[in-house]
């Protein structure tokens, strides 16, 4: 399992995490290339369906990265997203998929280091867990 490279999707808020990811880039902070970002206007837009879709398509881990508590540009989109993440975690658990494969993370636009560190930590965590027990069946 040591050579296992997890596929990770990060839904990132335009105003914070996506900007932080850019910042990690401009500071040349390295993080695992396993993490691939999909930009959303606010994590409040990330539907439970999107998170499920990522797992269906073969993600080993998914995280939703929004603004710090109280810092959402739209007042509370990040807390709504956090509640949805918890809901989907329960579904995953019922399906026998480790709920830790899905996570809500908060950071501000200025936190390039935090973005890189989170990406690293999350990737390591998923690497420990191994491949998602559910994988699309190759045709």
């Amino acid at each position: 399992m040591k050579n296992f490279e997890p596929e990770i999707v990060a839904f990132c808020c335009h105003y914070c995490a996506y900007t932080a990811a850019d910042m990690a880039g401009s500071k040349r902070l390295s993080y695992p290339p396993n993490v691939k970002i999909i930009r959303v206007p606010c994590t409040g837009k990330v539907d439970a369906l999107h998170m499920m879709r990522a797992f269906e398509k073969g993600a080993d881990g998914v995280y939703v990265a929004g603004c710090l508590e109280g810092d959402c540009h739209f007042k509370n989109g990040n807390t709504r997203a956090g509640q949805r993440v918890a809901y989907v975690q329960k579904i995953l658990e019922d399906l026998g998929i480790e709920p830790q494969r899905l996570e809500m993370i908060m950071m501000s636009a200025g936190m390039g280091e935090r973005f890189a560190r989170t990406a690293f930590e999350f990737t390591e965590k998923i690497r420990e867990l191994g491949p998602c027990p559910v994988k699309p069946i190759k045709k």
């Binding site: 206007p41 606010c42 369906l49 739209f74 509370n76």
Partner: peptide, 24 residues
């Protein structure tokens, strides 16, 4: 922000430029 679109239980709301089919 798209919060309504993500909450709608009837999937009757889409946030233009970030519609579900685009994200999917």
């Amino acid at each position: 922000c798209g919060v309504c679109a993500a909450e709608c239980p009837a999937k009757a709301i889409q946030l233009l430029a970030f519609e579900d089919d685009q994200i999917m």
